[in-house]
Design a protein around this nucleic acid. Structure first.
Lengths: 224, 224
DNA sequence: TCAAAAGTGTTAGATTTACACCCATGA
DNA sequence: TCATGGGTGTAAATCTAACACTTTTGA
C-alpha cells in the first residue's frame, strides 16, 4: 500500500488533428466513429495510451496506424479533461496535431478507415470536445507557421512560390501580398530555388523551390 | 463489456509551477517531497486528478490548497507522459503554471508546507521531470508576457513603473530601456496613473499605477 | 494573339532603437 | 549639498505595407 493507491486511475487517450493542404484549402482528416457511444458521428481519430508507451508514442502509433507514414511533424496541443467530455466513461485526452503532404497519403488507407478531408472552415459537428481541439490546433498552427518552417511539411519536397503563398493564405485565412511575400522568401537562404520548372499550373512555368533543412539549422531565422 | 474496458487506466496528476516576483527576481515555489519515492527531494507541488473533477479543477484545488488564494491566473502548460517519468508508478502529469503576488501570499502557509521561493535562474534539481516543466513554463511565460497583460498578476494592485520594468527584466532575462519602456506603457490606456505616490523606494517618490481590466477589455491591444 | 500565371522594385509611413540630462527629496 | 531614484524627447535606422506592369508560353 503506497500513496498512489489511495487515488483513482482514469483512461487516457490521444486524439490527432491531421492537417493537409489540398485544392488550395487547409483541411483536416476526420472519420465516422466506429464504436459506441457516438457511433456514426464525425470524429477525430484517436486511441488509448497503453501502459508501456509514452503519450507521445501513443500519438505516433495512432498517426502511423492511420497514415502508414513515418517521421511526420507532430506536436502536443494540450490535455482535455472535463469530467463528462466523453459521454461513455471518464477519459482524459491529450490532443496532438500533425502535418502531412496530402500527395504522399495513401488513398487506400483513407478509404479503408472511412476518412474524409474537410476544409478547416467547414468542419461539421464532431464527437465530444473535438471541435474545441480543432479550433485550438488551428490557432496554434497560425501562430507557429509565422515563426517556424513547418509549412514545408504540408507541401511536396518541390513546390512553387505560388503554392507556398496559397498555403499561407489558407492557414492564415487572409490574402498575402505577392511581392512582399516573395521578398521575404528571398531573404531566407534555406528556401532554395532549383533549376526545375513546374509547368502544370501555367504555360510559362514556375520555378520549383526546396526547403534545405541543413541550411536552416545553421542559420535558423524564419520570419514571415 | 465495452471498448473502454479493453484498455488500461493510469494515474493522472497535476503539477503546478507557481511564479512570484520578489526582490527583483522571478521565483517559483518548490518544496521537499513528503512521500516515497523521492522523499526529501525538491519538487513542484502536485496532486492527483479525482474522478469527479476536471483536470482544471484539480489544478485549481491544488493551487488553492497551497496558497489559500482564489481566482489566480493559471494556464495549462501541457501533459508529460514518459513511461518512467515517475519512479514509483506510471503517472501521467498535466502541468499548469500560475502567477501570484508574493505580498498576498500567507507566509504561514508557506512555512506549513515547507515551501521555498527560488530564483528561476537557480532552480535545484527537482523530482522526476519537474525541471523540464519549469523550463517550459518559463519559456511560455516569456512569450506570453509580451503579448498579454499578465504581468500585473505578479504585482500588487498599485505599482510603480520601475517595479513593472524590473519585473519585465526579470522575466525576460535582459535589460529594458527605461524611456522606451515608459513610452510603450503610456500608449496603453488601461495602465492608469493614480494620484498616489510611493515613497518607499526613493526620496522623490514615484507615481503609482494600476491596471484597469475593464478598460483593457474594451481596447485590448497589449504590446511590449 | 491573347489569356493566364510568373515574376519583379520603389516609396511612404510606421515602428523600433539608441541615447543623456534635469528633477525632487530626505538624509 | 549631495546621493538616489524618477522622469522626460529626439533623431536615425529599420521594418512594413501598399501598389502595377512586363514576361513567357500554349492553346
Amino acid at each position: 500500500m503506497n500513496f498512489y493507491s489511495e487515488h483513482a486511475k482514469v483512461w487516457v487517450s490521444v486524439d490527432v488533428i491531421i492537417f493537409g493542404f489540398d485544392e488550395g484549402q487547409l483541411k483536416i482528416l476526420i472519420g465516422r466513429r466506429q464504436m459506441d457511444p457516438g457511433r456514426g458521428q464525425w470524429s477525430l481519430y484517436g486511441g488509448f495510451v497503453g501502459t508501456s508507451e509514452s503519450i507521445d508514442q501513443a500519438a505516433e502509433r495512432t498517426l502511423q496506424e492511420l497514415t502508414g507514414m513515418q517521421r511526420l511533424y507532430m506536436r502536443q496541443l494540450g490535455a482535455f479533461g472535463a469530467v463528462d467530455r466523453d459521454p461513455g466513461e471518464r477519459v482524459i485526452s491529450i490532443a496532438y496535431y500533425a502535418l502531412i503532404n496530402v500527395a504522399d497519403y495513401d488513398e487506400k488507407l483513407r478509404a479503408q478507415y472511412g476518412l474524409e478531408w474537410v476544409d478547416v472552415n467547414h468542419v461539421p459537428q464532431l464527437y465530444s470536445d473535438h471541435n474545441e481541439m480543432v479550433a485550438m490546433a488551428l490557432s496554434k498552427m497560425r501562430q507557429k507557421i509565422k515563426s517556424e518552417p513547418i509549412s514545408f511539411r504540408l507541401l511536396p519536397p518541390l513546390f512553387t512560390l505560388t503554392q507556398l503563398q496559397h498555403l499561407y493564405e489558407a492557414v492564415l485565412g487572409e490574402e498575402v501580398d505577392k511581392r512582399n511575400f516573395r521578398k521575404r522568401i528571398k531573404d531566407m537562404d534555406f528556401i532554395e530555388k532549383t533549376e526545375l520548372i513546374d509547368k502544370t499550373s501555367s504555360k510559362r512555368g514556375a520555378a520549383l523551390f526546396r526547403f534545405n533543412r541543413k541550411a536552416y539549422k545553421e542559420d535558423p531565422n524564419f520570419k514571415l
